[in-house]
Amino acid sequence: MKTRYSYGGDEHIYVEVDEEMSLDAFFISLSMSKAVREANIPGVTEICPANASFEVRFDPDVIAPETMMAKIKELEHKAEQAEKRLSTRIIEIPVYYQDPWTHETLMRFRERHQDPSGSDLDYAARINGYDSVAAFIEAHHSQPWFVSMVGFVAGLPFLYQLVEREKQLQVPKYLRPRTDTPRHTVGYGGCFSCIYSVRGAGGYQMFGITPMPIFDPEQKVSYLEDFMVFFKPGDIVKWKPIDRAEYDRITAAVEQGTYAPRIAEVDFDLDAFNADMTGFNAKLMEALNDA
């Protein structure tokens, strides 16, 4: 792991903790971005943590770029020593895989895909060595996921699966991005899953859809009354496969204001997780099932 610093124009500093994805790189970038926040450096206007990197935006009229750069570099050593644990929550997110809406969309943009002859799931299952789409879907939802970044568009979570690297699913992004993606699409690109919080352009493969809103600018959805964005980095997600009837039932409950996602408070400790992934995930699931 080698930390790399770069200016992004005259108003940003970009810090890449590692060029490949890992939870170690995530925790260091999160710790460093927190350290920058706590340092209260005058002139800092935005601090954005990402999967294995983070970015600071600053006003160069208030602080010179090289001074800003030096202050951030000073925080690197401290962040590397920081504990890799979080008090967080695990949330069950219902997913209707192979739904008609993402299917319609993926057919509409077929010429932009690596394999126009099948669906995104057919392709993803095949290139990851699964003999059926059902087995691939099972791999997608059987183990929990870790929110390692929020962004792209309003409140969209990037999720990294809590399994050994050899079990990680990987797919390329579309050859050319689509101009349309249904709201609440569960997507996949690189090693990351995501939920499209709003309708719009997108390059990730499309696997299914969730009936659960995760961004509400009007803050009418019961669990988004306090803030319009649901996810934050460090949240843990367990996908729950559902059918059309369940999808319709949850959609109606959301509209009536009676839907409450299943959530449990948990601690995440990277060392404990690395020591025994199966056992650690089993405990996370226990906490969720008790909620």
């Binding site: 124009g9 108003e11 940003h12 999967n51 294995a52 970044m149 390329p172 050319r176 990351f192």
Partner: peptide
């Protein structure tokens, strides 16, 4: 390509974008 980035040489592990930054998909 680094793990998690995707196979295209223009792909990176998803990171933050700067205002004014210049990306070149593909």
């Amino acid at each position: 390509q680094p793990f998690g980035a995707g196979a295209d040489p223009s792909n990176i592990v998803d990171g933050c974008y700067s205002y004014g930054s210049i990306q070149v998909p593909g």
